[in-house]
């Protein structure tokens, strides 16, 4: 944890988690998590299924009470003044949470009324958020007739209507098609920029975390196992991989390369040379210069940057994880068993 919390100014932190813990029976779903999120930051919680991301969000949004430890959001304690916490946050849940028996507009209107926003202002804001998510024409259709993507967009609109200072996004693009996902990503970036909104998102999509987040906490088994910028996390791996096809002059080229300290690993198979380096793109010209000196011809070169996925696998040991049984799925499984008998 290079970017620990201790070297940051306390006053700049919008969200502070201090030893936050939640246990279900024997299982510690969230285990002593301490971190802070800066004001105006897009912060990612990345982890496999069942890592404890949603449990953290549920505690921060006051839906669950922590077993021990605590957290503050915009200075309000999640246990002592939950109503003030709720006033300053917006949340877009992982599972649908719309009233499908109401129209899109009614869903937004009722939500805004809960925050005590007056009629004229509500009208204006509803028009605005509907335009942002592109649902203006469908506003007066019952939500049960919406597609999955439209529902998601409506939930995002609802999360924004009361102008929260902190927005929680729990798997915001889960199960959406590529275009919708890209659109939603752009909305999220936009919101963060225009309204200086602090955003916390959970995801298990690497490219999502990479594209959106300024900092990422990698969570596994309820614990933070790494916390850094996406680029910083990638440096946890040995580096970029350069693959060169070379021709002739190897007897003088190889010894030259061996002297270079920035080369971490080197392998030669036939005429293919793979080199692991840091800052691969900056090393390419240098490699060509060395090749020129030693009379080696480089016929092709490719550079592979490590992906966040590589980092993730490196940290968590595997990319696929069985979902931990939630109480809900457990009950359903029980019902199914009873019905089978």
């Amino acid at each position: 944890m290079k970017n620990g919390i201790f070297d940051e100014q306390g006053s700049m932190d919008t969200i502070i988690l201090n030893g936050l813990t939640k246990t279900f029976g024997e299982l510690a779903a969230v285990d002593n998590v301490t971190l802070s999120v800066k004001s105006g930051e897009i912060f990612g919680l990345l982890g496999p299924n069942g890592a404890g991301k949603t449990t953290i969000i549920n505690m921060l949004t006051t839906l669950m009470v922590p077993t021990s430890g605590g957290a503050t959001i915009t200075g309000h304690d999640i246990e002592k003044d939950p109503e003030d916490v709720r006033r300053s946050i917006g949340i877009i849940f992982q599972d649908p949470s719309l009233d499908i028996g109401l129209t899109g507009r009614e869903n937004l209107d009722f939500h805004a009324m809960m925050y005590g926003i007056d009629t004229a202002e509500r009208k204006k804001r509803i028009t605005d958020v509907l335009a942002i998510v592109g649902l203006t024409e469908k506003a007066d259709v019952l939500v049960e007739n919406y597609s999955g993507g439209m529902k998601r967009r409506l939930e995002i609109a609802r999360g924004l209507i009361h102008h929260p200072r902190v927005l929680f996004l729990d798997e915001p693009t889960l199960g959406l098609d590529a275009q919708t996902r890209r659109k939603i990503w752009d909305h999220i970036k936009d919101l963060n920029k225009k309204h200086a909104m602090t955003i916390i998102l959970t995801t298990h999509y690497m490219e999502e975390a990479d594209y959106l987040c300024e900092r990422i906490a990698v969570i596994d088994h309820g614990k933070i196992i790494a916390l850094d910028t996406p680029a910083g996390l990638k440096t946890l791996l040995k580096g970029d991989v350069l693959t060169l096809s070379v021709n002739g002059g190897l007897s003088s080229f190889m010894p030259l390369l061996k002297e270079k300290l920035w080369i971490r690993e080197m392998n030669l198979h036939d005429s293919n040379l793979t080199i692991t380096v840091t800052d691969g793109e900056k090393r390419v010209p240098e490699l060509f210069a060395l090749a020129h000196v030693s009379g080696t011809a480089i016929t092709s070169v490719s550079l592979n940057k490590p992906s966040l996925e590589d980092v993730f696998i490196h940290l968590t040991g595997s990319s696929i994880r069985e979902q931990e049984g939630t109480r809900h799925s457990h009950v359903h499984a029980g019902m199914r068993r009873r019905m089978m008998r």
Partner: peptide, 14 residues
């Protein structure tokens, strides 16, 4: 079941 309860519970309504 439909998740709407959560939505009501995260608003500032007591």
């Amino acid at each position: 079941q439909f998740g709407f309860l959560k939505e009501v519970m995260v608003t500032p309504a007591s």
